[in-house]
């Protein structure tokens, strides 16, 4: 039998019907939504840059290293807030990461299966508590506890360190670090747990069959295998601590200067924005400076998150291939 032989016509739809129009439309619509997500990110950067323009023009890069923040004299520098953000985030990681790792190890490796899921839920409830409620609790419970007992104890035992010297204020940088540590626990422990459960069972068995104890098999077989996933989890926690606003704003004391002591009030990028954005409205340079802080916050948070996602994706991606 001889058929007409036209190789070129294979993929063309010569008779588009109603259905293919519907497909085209729907595909275009959902594609537009997808691209909108991407465009949104670019738009955020552009809009913030435009609003920050007066400050960008006036102070240039000096904005980042100047310690002077004075709306009255129109002098604006971001250094105290960068310092406050970095130090509170570092404290949060220092205190929060070990606890999160312990929880993840307990949940994925040690806990009896029957309490694994309930425990996971309970820890995740920490993430369901709004930030502003952490702040409220911080003011009334954490601040008196830390300023009344913990800080004097630290001053007594480690008082030779400059960071523990000086007057103990109620709301201070140390309290902000502690509250951030609590707030990053759900994120860090959940992502770490995902990484640990993604470790193939044979890794644990290989270590156990060498005569390792349970802890040794966790250390050799599990933790070292999942280290890039865990690192990603820590970075995600850093991202959360870095931009967290309300709880910090309520307990850090809001002072626009750098103090050596951790027991003195301070300010972070986000707490300064939350405190001053409304006041700044109407003064171009002041507003520009506040928005520029937001731009700095966004760009650094973007970097941290890109890095963290790459770590997590790479880790979870490679284990999928191995299983």
């Amino acid at each position: 039998m001889a058929f007409p032989f036209r190789r070129g016509a294979r993929r063309a739809r010569l008779h588009p019907t109603g259905s293919s129009w519907g497909d085209t439309l729907f595909r275009a619509g959902s594609g537009a939504a997808g691209v909108a997500v991407l465009a949104l990110l670019g738009l955020i950067a552009i809009v913030l840059t435009v609003n920050a323009a007066p400050s960008l023009r006036t102070f240039g890069l000096g904005f980042l290293v100047s310690g002077e923040w004075n709306p009255v004299t129109n002098q604006f520098g971001a250094l105290p807030f960068i310092y406050g953000t970095l130090l509170t985030s570092a404290l949060a990681l220092l205190l929060g990461v070990p606890v999160s790792l312990g929880i993840a190890i307990f949940v994925s490796e040690l806990a009896p299966p029957s309490i694994r899921i309930p425990l996971t839920y309970v820890v995740e409830l920490l993430a369901a508590v709004p930030s502003v409620v952490y702040g409220l609790w911080g003011i009334y419970v954490l601040v008196p506890l830390l300023a009344g007992y913990v800080a004097p104890a630290l001053q007594g035992s480690l008082g030779f360190l400059p960071v523990f010297q000086g007057t103990i204020y109620g709301t201070n940088l140390f309290t902000a670090g502690v509250i951030l540590a609590i707030m990053i626990i759900p994120t860090v422990s959940a992502v770490t747990r995902d990484a640990l459960t993604a470790v193939p069972q044979n890794q644990r068995e290989a270590a156990l069959s060498l005569g390792a104890t349970r802890w040794e098999s966790i250390r050799i077989g599990v933790l070292s295998y999942a280290r890039s996933g865990i690192f990603g989890a820590v970075m995600l926690g850093l991202g959360r601590a870095f931009g967290e606003t309300m709880a910090v704003t309520m307990v850090i004391g809001n002072r626009n200067a750098i103090s050596v002591s951790w027991f003195a009030p301070a300010q972070t990028l986000s707490s300064l924005i939350a405190n001053n954005i409304r006041e700044a409205l109407g003064t171009d340079l002041y507003l520009g400076a506040v928005v520029e802080l937001g731009l700095v916050l966004m760009l650094v948070a973007l970097l941290i998150n890109v890095f963290a996602r790459l770590m997590v994706w790479r880790f979870l991606g490679t284990t999928e291939g191995l299983e």
Binding site: L41, G239, A301, N305
Partner: peptide, 19 residues
């Protein structure tokens, strides 16, 4: 970037709409 955006501080989103 959708993943990355879920990690961005919410205050940045507020500031974006404000600006």
């Amino acid at each position: 970037f959708a993943d990355v955006m879920t990690g961005l501080p919410s205050i940045v989103m507020g500031l974006f709409i404000f600006a």
